[in-house]
Design a protein around this nucleic acid. Structure first.
Lengths: 130, 130
DNA sequence: CCGCATCCTCCATGATACTG
DNA sequence: CAGTATCATGGAGGATGCGG
């Protein structure tokens, strides 16, 4: 794949494709939920315990978005007390791979980036006063 | 790499690494700028022409963030009128690969997701009135 | 030509409280 | 247990005008 072809995959159609997927995953919790569910199917409360810091509201919203996109399936059992289990769909599982690539990149280059930021901020000190 | 190890890359340290990289690239323009610069070094105005819809302000902000992170280098030529050229750094170029994976995933699965959304919205019609 | 300053709007996130 | 309802807030993004 040539350099030009690679950028076309990103820039194609004015970037609508890549933007669509970013709009989906580029929020605080989606990838964490997907990664957590990748280990095994799980109940709501279990998910909340395993994802430190997520609120009931945000977990609920995230799961519903994922369900709507067909990346997660939801199964409610008619019991008392209620039990609801979430599970990655086949499509949802395919998202793990590109997400892991991204995580690998992050882990590998975070030191470089942090260093660059410190250097940049040093040469252009932000508001001294105020 | 086992399934557990893969999720660890994403969930490790409570997801801080993946969140960091998402905070960087998960905005409207960053990946488009990186992909466009991947073809060749380029001036500000040329970038703006090649990225449909970007405003001067957002292009300027995006470029400065990328420069701060060390993904893009900026060269200003002391001429009149001013000329400024932007170019991916070595680190910046390494971002293309994971970004392309993501774009491939998007292109491949967008149809599935669109179908799922339509189906979901059909069975749960949103506010009929109002 | 390049790009910063200002003002404004909207949405994602979060805290809290309530319900089946 | 598994959510929804309500309210508050910060930051992303856009429009416009000025400045070197």
């Amino acid at each position: 794949m040539s350099r030009y072809e690679r950028t076309c995959l990103i820039r194609g159609d004015g970037g609508r494709a890549i933007r669509g997927i970013l709009d989906r995953i580029a929020n605080k919790w989606t990838l964490l939920v997907v990664a957590t569910l990748h280990e095994q199917r799980m109940r709501f409360g279990e998910l909340q315990q395993r994802i430190p810091g997520v609120s009931q509201r945000m977990l609920s919203l995230t799961l519903r978005h994922l369900e709507r996109d067909g990346l997660v399936s939801r199964t409610a059992y008619p019991e008392v007390p209620p039990r609801v289990e979430y599970e990655l769909t086949d499509v949802g599982r395919t998202l793990i791979d590109p997400a892991v690539r991204l995580a690998e990149w992050a882990v590998e280059h975070n030191p470089d980036i942090d260093r660059s930021r410190r250097s940049y901020d040093e040469h252009r000190p932000p508001e001294p006063d105020r």
